[in-house]
Design a protein around this nucleic acid. Structure first.
Length: 408
RNA sequence: GCAUGGGUGGGAGAGUGGCUAAUUCCAGCGGACUGUAAAUCCGCCGCCUAACGGCUACGCAGGUUCGAAUCCUGCCCCAUGCACCA
């Protein structure tokens, strides 16, 4: 069989691209998944690939973009990608009822979040080639009998082997039955989509495999589960998450995005290049070598990284501008030409202006700021907070927040 | 339903009658330093007030007391075990 007879790209070429940057719980799993993926690719047809996203949060961050980038690779190779929005799961809320960050949403809220989600996702995905589905389409139609039959495919022991549950069992912490159902809902998604491949973070391994099990039990070919590393946040330790405050949002302005990338620890640079930029593994290896032998300074590597990442979401021009802004403002400590403006009528109390501009929450904060020397008016330290300011004045709060007053 | 343990500032978690706007940690903010918006160090970190001072706050509502996050009563909520139900 010659490769020219194939409609799609050569199997090994696809394998190299698709397996890059993946991470599996253990070696046998990786070997199995690799073998199964190869077998599917040899069928020389577009594979049905999907990844599910929870629409309870409005903001997607770079952590989410890792799996989206992988989806994009599948797209570019001609596979059929579904962006699945977990609308049903979001209407149920957190199974334990404790996690307030996972609120119960109304249909309208979900639709709205989904909209902003997909808008953000299409910075990476090819809009024309992406199917958007909501799991409420099928999950909401299941009857109690359907669900009961679904649960019959699983045993409690399987769930209890999951580390998360085993630990809580040991500690006497509650494990809600609904938590079991969560995995089954995700499994049902895979069955409903008749998925060839599902992507997810390594923390989703259990749920991905639950899908395999269901598919097999119901006569489908079990999906290939491809897991991706959890992206660490800007602190370089914890996983990127809004609740840890260490995230870089996909919709953040270019300057902020660049700046936040600059704040990651040096040790995280290569990891970010691998997971967040279009650079090939070979290029990343070259960068790593240059960093190791000292021919590339971490500062320069990070600027490159910041530009690459910012380019993905804002374009090359904006990324270059962001870099220049960083170099001018942060490194050379220059006052930027452009800064947020705030309209005032005539002379106004400084405290009122800052509060209106939402730079501070209370007058007490202004007092503190002045006492700490963190407030500058036209380049001079403000000694007395009880002053008035007017159009034309430039205020700097802290190191990098600016405000220019204009007439209303 | 019964029993036990809990509900404290953005989060975690001390405090069991005045010394407590409330230890500590995390987050946040400011300063210094730095290749950096990182790390580190120092400081700040309820609201109003120029200040004195005032106000609000420890699940909710009452009460005791000169004085309560801390004691009492009722209620609500959470966790675990048992019971009940199936």
């Amino acid at each position: 069989m010659t490769s020219s007879a194939r409609k799609m790209a050569p199997v090994e070429e696809q394998m190299r691209i698709l397996m890059a940057g993946t991470e599996f719980g253990d070696e046998p799993t990786r070997v199995t998944m690799e073998r199964e993926l190869r077998a599917r690719l040899e069928q020389d047809r577009p594979l049905r690939v999907y990844c599910g996203y929870d629409p309870t949060r409005v903001d997607l961050h770079l952590g989410h973009s890792v799996s989206m980038r992988k989806l994009r690779q599948f797209q570019d190779l001609g596979h059929e990608v579904t962006f699945l929005i977990g609308s049903f799961t979001a209407t149920i809320g957190d199974p334990t009822g404790r996690d307030k960050t996972r609120p119960v949403l109304t249909d309208a809220e979900i639709a709205e979040n989904a909209k902003t989600y997909t808008d953000q996702a299409f910075a990476i995905l090819d809009r024309a080639k992406t199917l958007i589905r909501y799991n409420g389409e099928w999950l909401s139609k299941l009857t109690f009998a359907d669900v009961t039959r679904l649960t019959a495919h699983y045993t409690v022991q399987q769930f209890m082997r999951r580390e998360n549950f085993a630990k809580r069992q040991e500690n006497g912490d509650p494990i809600h039955v609904s938590e079991f159902l969560y995995a089954m809902m995700q499994a049902y998604d895979a069955f409903e989509l008749n998925a060839d491949v599902q992507l997810g973070g390594t923390d989703q391994t259990f749920n991905l495999f639950a899908g395999r099990q269901l598919q097999e039990a119901r006569g489908q070919q079990p999906q290939v589960c491809i897991t991706l590393p959890i992206l660490v946040g800007t602190d370089g330790h914890e996983k990127m998450s809004k609740s840890y405050g260490n995230y870089i949002g996909i919709t953040e302005p270019a300057n902020d995005m660049f700046g936040k990338v600059m704040s990651i620890p040096d040790a995280t640079i290569i990891n970010y290049f691998t997971l967040l930029t279009p650079l090939t593994p070979v290029e990343v290896d070259a960068l790593e070598a240059s960093l190791a032998d000292g021919s590339l300074r971490p500062m320069d590597a990070k600027k490159r990284l910041g530009e690459e990442i910012t380019t993905v979401f804002h374009g090359a021009d904006a990324a270059r501008d962001a870099r220049e802004y960083f170099e001018a403002t942060v490194q050379r400590k220059e006052t930027p030409d452009e800064m947020p403006e705030h309209a005032v009528v005539g002379r106004t109390a400084l405290t009122d202006v800052l509060r209106e501009a939402a730079l501070v929450k209370s007058n007490g904060e202004v007092r503190r700021l002045v006492g700490e020397g963190g407030l500058l008016l036209n380049g001079e330290k403000v000694a007395d907070f009880n002053i008035e300011v007017g159009p034309g004045d430039e205020i700097r709060v802290g190191r990098h927040r600016y405000l220019r007053l204009v007439a209303k």
